[in-house]
Design a protein around this nucleic acid. Sequence first.
DNA 1: CGGTATCCTCATAGATACTG
DNA 2: CAGTATCTATGAGGATACCG
Lengths: 116, 116
Amino acid sequence: MPPDPYQRDCPSRKLLDRIGDRWTVLVIATLEDGPRRFSEIRRRVDGVSQKMLTQTLRALERDGLVTRTVHAEVPPRVEYALTPLGRSLLDPLGALMRWATEHLGEVEQAQQAYAA
Amino acid sequence: MPPDPYQRDCPSRKLLDRIGDRWTVLVIATLEDGPRRFSEIRRRVDGVSQKMLTQTLRALERDGLVTRTVHAEVPPRVEYALTPLGRSLLDPLGALMRWATEHLGEVEQAQQAYAA
DNA sequence: CGGTATCCTCATAGATACTG
DNA sequence: CAGTATCTATGAGGATACCG
């Protein structure tokens, strides 16, 4: 029996939740073109708090989507990069982001029509 | 300037949040093969409360992704169906669900490795 | 620089009860 | 059947302070 996110206790539902998470989507996309430092990601993903970014990155690390590399320098430099598994998420998440930006106008029109 | 979900106040970010929502994903997918009644959707999406399902469906209706049709019968029959705009989300969301089910095993392995 | 720890709040999911 | 209304509590997430 394959995983079934329609079932409430199937682990795939939790996974689906996490990969659709607001910060996860943007963080993964940020790492598309190569390793990035903590502060670079934070600047790129406007509005993410340090706490949430740390939390999101830890979860991605645990799930094997991202690696964390500490360079022994002063000041410390920490770089995050996508694993092959993480890279395999780029297409699905990219499609989602593209949908949101491309269809935003239609959605806003629908909202105005609905208000009336 | 196109919508940019990296910006905290861009409406596309809210939209992205909503289409990645746990219930939204499953509800949209449930409507893939045609109109469904409220109770059918509720049974299919295991664990969703009446409140959350109503809320999710209302949001989808407002955003122009789903239509709501009340059939004047006793007992009342209410059917939900995807609009063309809603159908255009099937591919991106389907890809996301497929990713979650196909890579669940790898993620779980990574989690076990991380624990050690 | 890149965190961790703590506190606090406020949104929202869930449970429950009621209705056209 | 398909909701609405109300209450509660839980936990996501922000603010702040401190640390290696």
